[in-house]
């Protein structure tokens, strides 16, 4: 199985959306002007990430970065921790009273998020997803829901073109997907986003929601795009007119206003087509 391409054609947001909805397990690698980012997922949750070389991702460095260790402390610890996994080192530091378990979890989590959020600014880069490849057991992994990551990522989106292409039509309506309550609980929404959420209803078009909330086209597109990619809402299908039987071989006709109805074809005709194709 392959999941390869370029961010130009398939954005980080879309990739995360796919991994989330398909509940994928594996590691995504993205290369962008000499840098490479690695992110691992288990059943659709982000569990681990690092940039470049995994050495830079040493627990001591991460704790230094989050201010839990001084540069000097980090250096000494890293030198002494030679051959130890992050998990083992974490245990040692906790037992020695240097940091708390919560310090470690928060620092590692923030490190992962910092990496992923940086990716949202990459508009170009080769990516590759390797199914079932996971970090070795010594690494500290923390499951993070992708919905909230996607929402935050879309807040950082600056390209109008992407939004325009993903959401060309503002005269459509939205509805919540299944179990929106469970999803909403996992996402930290801004006040503006909550206001949009409160207007989600098959009777309101996106344009109407924007108007009611005094949001520009760019702002409403960004919010709705995030909510769509996070799987919170979906488009309401435009209602189709009731079927009317009509002949297949009708001649010229004026430009159609409504949706074309299927031709009035007999069941026996379709059955004959099936038999014929089977015999090819």
């Amino acid at each position: 199985m392959a999941l390869k391409g370029n961010l130009r054609d398939f954005s980080t947001t879309q990739l995360l959306n796919l991994i989330n909805l398909a509940r994928k397990t594996g590691t995504l690698t993205i290369q962008h002007s000499g840098e490479s980012a690695h992110m691992s997922f288990r059943e659709g949750k982000l569990i681990y990430a690092y940039m470049g070389d995994n050495d830079n991702n040493h627990l001591a460095k991460i704790l230094q970065h989050s201010g839990k260790l001084s540069a000097e402390q980090a250096q000494i610890i890293q030198a002494h921790a030679e051959g130890k996994s992050d998990k083992q080192l974490g245990h040692l530091l906790i037992t020695a009273g240097r940091v708390t378990q919560n310090d470690i979890i928060q620092s590692v989590r923030q490190n992962v998020l910092d990496i992923v959020y940086r990716l949202f600014t990459w508009v170009e880069g080769v990516f590759r997803f390797e199914a079932n490849k996971l970090p070795s057991p010594g690494h500290i992994t923390i499951p993070i829901d992708l919905e909230s990551v996607i929402m935050e990522g879309s807040r950082r989106l600056k390209e109008w073109e992407v939004l325009q292409e993903e959401l060309p039509d503002l005269d459509v309506s939205l509805q919540f997907t299944e179990r929106p309550d469970a999803r909403l609980r996992n996402i930290n929404l801004t006040v503006e986003e909550w206001r949009v959420v409160s207007f989600v209803n098959p009777r309101n078009t996106i344009r109407q929601i924007a108007k009611a909330n005094n949001l520009s086209e760019f702002e409403i597109r960004r919010i709705v795009y995030g909510m769509l990619q996070a799987g919170l809402v979906e488009f309401v299908d435009k209602p189709k007119p009731a079927p009317v039987a009509e002949a297949a071989d009708q001649g010229r006709r004026p430009k159609r206003q409504a949706v074309e109805q299927p031709p009035d074809v007999k069941r026996s005709v379709v059955e004959r087509l099936i038999d014929r194709i089977k015999s090819i």
Binding site: N17, L18, A22, V259, E260, P262
Partner: peptide
Amino acid sequence: SYASTPYVVAANKQDMEDAWEPEDLRIILR
């Protein structure tokens, strides 16, 4: 939008190594 006739999607070139899986395409194409 033109017609309410049935349709199917063919995830073509599945013989190639770089082919994305049909079920992934289902999500992508909504």
